[in-house]
Design a protein around this nucleic acid. Structure first.
Lengths: 156, 156
DNA sequence: TCCAAATTTTGAATCTGTACAAATAATACC
DNA sequence: GGTATTATTTGTACAGATTCAAAATTTGGA
C-alpha cells in the first residue's frame, strides 16, 4: 500500500504553550505522551497511522507503548488538535489539524492526496441536515491520481 | 456503538433476474451466497457490517460461513450492486446501491445518517485536482445529530 | 507538600479482515 | 441431459489494529 504519507498540510504546528492551553481548555491534562505524539505527528506531516507515529517516536529515542500512542491520539482528537482522516475503512490515519482540506484516494496505487477546499463548496455542505449541528465536512474523492491517469496501464 | 443501521436508502432492491444479469454481465457467477447476502442486505437496509449480515442470515435459518459473507460482499461491490460506505476508519460497512447520497456521523451517539446529495455540490467537487481522473466523491459530515443536538447534555 | 483523579503502562484479549487448500457447484459445450 | 472446466464456497489458520483491565505514575489544585 503506497500510503503516500507525504502530502502535507502546511499550517504550522502549535507551540508547547498553545498546545497546553488547548488541552487544558478541554479539561485534558498536559502529559508527556500527548506532547511527544503531537510533535511527532506534526514533524512527520501528512497522514499517519498510530504505528507509524509509535515507530517514529521509538526511532527518536524514548519509545512509547503502543497503547499510550492510541490514548494520546484520541486525546488530541478530542482536543481538536488532530483529526482522523476519512479515507475509508481500514487502518485509522491521523493528521495534525491545519488548513481545511479534503482527500483523494487513487484506486490503483492507493496514493492519498490532499485536496484544497474550495470555500464555496465547503460552505454549501453545511446546510443539508435540518436539526443537526454539522461541525465538519470531509470529502473523499476517488479515481486515478495524476500519475496513474497518465500511465497507459491504467485500467478503465 | 449505536450504529444506527436504520437510515435506509429507498431505491427498491433488484429482482433475482436483474441481480443475475448484473452479476453475469461482469463475468461473475450467480451463486446462492451472493443472492442471500444481497437480499439480506437489502432487507436490512441501511449500513451493515459483514458480521451483521452474517448474523441476520443465521437468524433466518441457513447460516453462511463468515468467509463466504466477505466473499459475497466483495463480489457484490465488484458488480456494482453494493457499496462500501465511507464512514471513516473502522469496521467496513456496506449498503445496497441506491440513490447517491452522503453520510453524517454523530460524534456523540455515532448515529450514521444518510444525507441526500445536492447535485450542484456533487458536480463542483470534480474539478479540483488537475491531472487526476476523479470518478466518485463521498462527503462525510460530522457533528451532532438532530437528537443529540436537541438534548441538553450535548457537549459543546 | 499532599491528595484525589486523570493518565500511563503492561500484557492479554478481541475484533476484523485475509490467505490458503480442498471440496463443491455453476457454466459452456457437446 | 451429460460432462469438463473453473469460479466459488468452505473451514481453518493467521496477521494486524484497537481495546480492556488492573496496577503504577503523574498532574493540577488545596
Amino acid at each position: 500500500m503506497t500510503n503516500d504519507s507525504g502530502s502535507e498540510t502546511p499550517g504550522q504546528p502549535l507551540s508547547v504553550d498553545e498546545l497546553s492551553d488547548r488541552l487544558r481548555s478541554r479539561g485534558l491534562r498536559v502529559t508527556g505522551p500527548r506532547l511527544v505524539v503531537y510533535n511527532t505527528l506534526a514533524k512527520q506531516g501528512g497522514h499517519r497511522s498510530a504505528d507509524e507515529v509509535a515507530a517514529a517516536i521509538t526511532a527518536a529515542g524514548p519509545s512509547l507503548p503502543r497503547t499510550s500512542v492510541y490514548n494520546a491520539l484520541k486525546a488530541l482528537v478530542d482536543a481538536g488538535l488532530a483529526d482522523v482522516v476519512d479515507a475509508g475503512p481500514g487502518t485509522t490515519l491521523y493528521e495534525v489539524r491545519g488548513e481545511s482540506h479534503h482527500h483523494f484516494i487513487c484506486r490503483q496505487c492507493n496514493a492519498l492526496l490532499d485536496v484544497p477546499t474550495e470555500e464555496s463548496v465547503n460552505g454549501s455542505l453545511y446546510s443539508e441536515l435540518p436539526g443537526a449541528r454539522v461541525e465538519s465536512a470531509q470529502v473523499i474523492l476517488r479515481g486515478l491520481c495524476p500519475d496513474c491517469a497518465a500511465r497507459p496501464t491504467a485500467r478503465a
